[in-house]
Write a protein that binds this DNA or RNA. Structure first.
Length: 294
DNA sequence: CTCCAGGGCAAAT
DNA sequence: ATTTGCCATGGA
């Protein structure tokens, strides 16, 4: 999580992560850490009662995908000779979700076609202007802006943050859809099939196939969703020598086929591989295997 | 200076 | 039905 160097939605300090969420319209600021056996949660700002405790536990469980048994995924990784290393090197890595669907959509629209660092700084500007700041351990952490607020932003305001006019229009439009109840996380989750969920999302202006799949993966936890065509994913596939070029769709399809139901996790692990320097990636020609204690 | 960024839309083939 | 031009700016 600490690779989100510029993320204003949570902070990482050693092995402690801080965040603010809204429970029944009330902000709750908390820290999450761990000892050898347990996750440790501390509420640092906000009322503590049974409801808050229960909902915060539920949030964290969903946020870091705690209830998922990822052993089957590791079995699949182990069945692939050039991906096997991931089961060891990234052991325990779980999908970090963006439970708030509005936030997930805004974030993915912001991130379209620009580098991640710039995307983080655009998000920060949006959040600083319309969100609510809280201070945890002397550092500001924000509650993501409410759609009811963002819907009244003007294109010019967002342009001043250096978003394109398009991004500005998309974000304001999405905020309106949430504010008037046209779309909600509940409504998306109620749609029964993956294909229909993609259709519902891509019906929104600014949401194409990439964004729909990104959001299904990160917010809805639809694990068969994968943003094929994603620039980062393609680069990871290239560096693993699993495709010969970025238009090698058949090879990608073939690679993902055995991972049915775990496509999101495979993408997640490929993204993770991007933060590892390429010279430590196993060269499949020379080093087909690596031992556990390597 | 050039090319690419965790793309998508609308106009032009 | 597919391809192309465009968006705006930061990094490499």
């Amino acid at each position: 999580m600490d690779r989100n160097y510029d993320d204003c939605m949570h902070h990482v300090n050693g092995n402690i992560v801080s965040k603010v969420i809204s429970i029944n319209q009330t902000p709750v600021a908390f820290t999450l850490g761990a000892d050898k056996k347990n996750l440790l949660v501390e509420i640092v700002d906000g009322e503590v009662n049974d409801t808050v405790t229960r909902q915060l536990t539920h949030f964290i469980t969903d946020w870091i995908d705690l209830e998922r048994n990822i052993a089957p995924f590791y079995q699949l990784l182990n069945g692939h000779k050039s991906l096997r290393y991931m089961a060891d090197d990234f052991y325990g890595l779980r999908l970090i979700a963006i439970p708030d669907l509005f936030e997930a959509l805004c974030w993915s629209v912001i991130g379209q076609q620009i580098n991640l660092k710039f995307a983080y700084s655009l998000k920060r500007r949006l959040v600083e202007k319309f969100g609510k700041p809280f201070v945890i351990n002397n550092r500001p952490v924000y509650l993501f802006p409410d759609p009811a607020i963002v819907q009244h932003a003007s294109v010019d305001e967002l342009r001043a943050m250096q978003m394109t006019s398009r991004k500005a229009e998309y974000i304001i439009g999405i905020a309106k859809l949430f504010a008037d109840g046209t779309i909600s996380k509940e409504k998306v989750m109620a749609v029964s099939s993956y294909k229909e969920r993609v259709q519902l999302l891509t019906g929104i202006k600014g949401i194409g196939a990439w964004t729909a799949n990104y959001v299904l993966m990160k917010s809805i936890k639809d694990l068969q969703a994968a943003p094929y065509g994603d620039a980062g994913l393609l680069n990871a596939l290239l560096s693993h020598k699993l495709i010969k070029d970025k238009t090698n769709f058949k090879a990608i399809e073939k690679l993902f086929k055995p991972f049915k139901g775990w496509e999101s996790y495979l993408v997640l692990y490929f993204w993770r591989s991007l933060s590892i320097s390429t010279d430590v990636l196993p060269s499949t020609d020379v080093l087909p295997l690596r031992s556990k204690d390597e």
